Amino acid sequence: MTAALKLVNLSKTFDIGGGFFSAPRAGVRAVHPTDLTVAAGETLGIVGESGCGKSTLARMLVGLLPPTTGTIEIEGAALDTADPAVFGKRIQYVFQDPISSLNPRKTIRQIMEAPLKRLHGMGRADRAARISEIFASVNLREEFLDRYPHEFSGGQAQRIGIARALAAAARILILDEPVSALDVSVQAQVLNLLADLKRDFGLTYLFITHDLSVVEAVSDRIAVLYFGSVVELGRAEDIFRAPMHPYTKLLADSAPVVGRALTAPEGGETELPDPLNPPSGCAFRARCPRATALCASAPPPLQARADGREVACYHPLDG
Rank of each mutant, 00 (worst) to 15 (best):
I172P: 00
T69A: 10
D274Q: 10
E310W: 14
L294S: 10
A306Q: 14
K106T: 04
R105S: 10
K198F: 03
A304I: 02
D15H: 13
A58W: 04
R127L: 06
A306P: 02
L79Q: 09
A195C: 01
L116K: 08
Y314V: 02
Q303E: 14
M112Y: 04
A283S: 11
V38M: 13
I99H: 14
N192C: 01
R127C: 15
H120V: 03
A40L: 03
N103D: 15
T68M: 05
R290C: 05
G18I: 09
G18W: 05
A77Y: 02
N277F: 00
K249Q: 14
D35Y: 07
K198H: 10
S153F: 09
P149M: 03
A4D: 05
N103G: 06
P301K: 12
A157I: 00
V218N: 02
S101L: 07
L61Q: 03
G155I: 06
D97C: 04
C282M: 03
P149V: 02
R290H: 14
E269N: 11
E269R: 11
V218R: 04
C52H: 01
L7V: 03
A58R: 09
R221H: 13
D176N: 14
D126E: 15
G228I: 03
A217Q: 11
R109K: 13
G154Q: 11
M1V: 08
I91H: 11
L233N: 10
E269V: 09
A252F: 06
R309K: 13
V138K: 12
I222H: 05
L173D: 02
A298G: 02
A114V: 09
L276P: 00
A168T: 04
A82H: 13
E42L: 10
A128C: 09
R141Y: 00
M244E: 05
R29W: 00
A188R: 11
P178D: 12
E49N: 05
P299V: 06
D126V: 11
R29L: 01
A23C: 00
G123C: 10
E151M: 12
F144M: 14
T2L: 07
L57T: 11
S229A: 15
K198I: 03
R127P: 05
L197E: 02
L175W: 08
M122W: 08
L173N: 06
G70H: 06
V94I: 13
A188T: 06
A163M: 06
K117H: 07
P316D: 06
F135H: 01
L119G: 05
G70Q: 05
S297A: 14
F284S: 01
C295T: 07
M60A: 10
N192A: 04
I72N: 09
G27S: 10
G18Q: 12
A77M: 09
A129H: 08
A223S: 04
T81L: 08
V184A: 14
A4S: 14
N139G: 08
A195M: 11
T69M: 01
D80M: 06
N9Q: 15
G259E: 05
E113H: 05
R290V: 09
L250V: 02
G281Y: 04
A304L: 14
A181E: 12
A82T: 15
